[in-house]
Amino acid sequence: MKRYEYKVIPAPQKGVKAKGVKTAEGRFAVSVEQLLNQMGQDGWEYQRAELLPSEERSGLTGSTTNWRNVLVFRRVVEEEVDASWVGAVPEMDDTPLAQPIPGPEEVQAPKPIAAEADEPPLSLKRSDDAVDENGPSKT
């Protein structure tokens, strides 16, 4: 399915001078032609011209309705998607996406940090803040 984005711009109000064009209608046509070609080069496809009302303030408390001419363009945002792919499950090879988590029998305990041979392990060391059976140590 194709998806589009739209762009609406004001239509030209005055014609532009061009070689060989003498009338006001011809000059106006040249200005519209130049605008359409410029938008086409940017990838926009012309759709239509619209005459739309625009309510604008007039004075301190009033409002008036002005009619504006606009040009509507569109361009494709996404390319067409084949209907056979919608809802289809992609094919996968036999390569596992993740490695299995090892069980407790497969996990090896980390090796202890090398310490001096005559020093007891940290869990058996006595700290200065430790309390022995006679009460807290006094230093």
Score class of each variant (00 low, 15 high):
16 V>F: 08
84 S>I: 13
69 N>K: 08
46 Y>E: 11
56 E>P: 00
90 P>K: 08
42 D>A: 10
19 K>V: 15
78 E>R: 11
19 K>H: 13
66 N>A: 01
52 L>N: 00
82 D>F: 06
83 A>C: 00
99 Q>F: 09
54 S>T: 01
67 W>S: 00
27 R>Y: 02
98 A>Q: 11
93 D>N: 14
37 N>P: 04
87 G>W: 05
20 G>H: 06
40 G>S: 14
42 D>N: 14
46 Y>D: 12
39 M>T: 10
22 K>H: 11
98 A>R: 14
28 F>R: 14
20 G>M: 02
17 K>A: 14
96 P>M: 09
107 V>R: 05
112 P>L: 06
72 V>A: 07
108 Q>E: 08
30 V>S: 12
47 Q>R: 10
92 M>L: 04
52 L>G: 00
44 W>H: 11
16 V>C: 13
72 V>M: 04
83 A>S: 12
75 R>N: 06
29 A>Y: 01
92 M>W: 03
110 P>K: 12
48 R>S: 11
74 R>I: 01
71 L>C: 02
91 E>H: 03
17 K>S: 15
52 L>Y: 00
104 P>M: 04
100 P>M: 08
64 T>L: 05
65 T>P: 02
94 D>F: 11
40 G>P: 14
74 R>A: 11
23 T>D: 09
57 R>A: 11
66 N>T: 07
81 V>T: 10
81 V>K: 09
27 R>W: 02
96 P>H: 10
23 T>A: 07
102 P>L: 05
73 F>Q: 02
47 Q>D: 11
113 I>Y: 07
54 S>V: 00
25 E>C: 01
45 E>Y: 10
68 R>E: 01
73 F>G: 12
108 Q>I: 08
31 S>R: 06
64 T>E: 03
25 E>S: 10
78 E>K: 12
20 G>E: 11
35 L>R: 05
112 P>D: 12
38 Q>K: 10
33 E>R: 07
102 P>G: 08
38 Q>A: 04
36 L>R: 13
62 G>V: 03
45 E>T: 12
114 A>N: 11
87 G>K: 09
49 A>K: 07
77 V>R: 00
83 A>N: 05
42 D>T: 03
45 E>A: 10
17 K>Y: 13
86 V>T: 04
103 G>A: 01
36 L>Q: 11
110 P>I: 06
114 A>V: 15
16 V>P: 05
76 V>A: 10
107 V>F: 07
101 I>M: 04
85 W>E: 09
87 G>R: 05
71 L>I: 06
112 P>S: 15
25 E>H: 05
33 E>L: 12
36 L>Y: 02
94 D>A: 15
56 E>A: 01
18 A>W: 14
39 M>C: 09
55 E>T: 07
110 P>E: 14
33 E>T: 15
30 V>G: 07
46 Y>R: 11
29 A>Q: 14
76 V>D: 05
19 K>I: 07
62 G>N: 02
98 A>P: 02
113 I>S: 04
82 D>R: 03
74 R>E: 15
41 Q>R: 15
92 M>A: 13
98 A>L: 12
76 V>C: 08
49 A>G: 10
47 Q>G: 02
91 E>S: 07
81 V>C: 07
44 W>M: 08
84 S>P: 01
71 L>E: 04
109 A>C: 01
56 E>F: 00
74 R>G: 12
52 L>W: 00
39 M>A: 09
72 V>Q: 10
71 L>Y: 09
24 A>I: 03
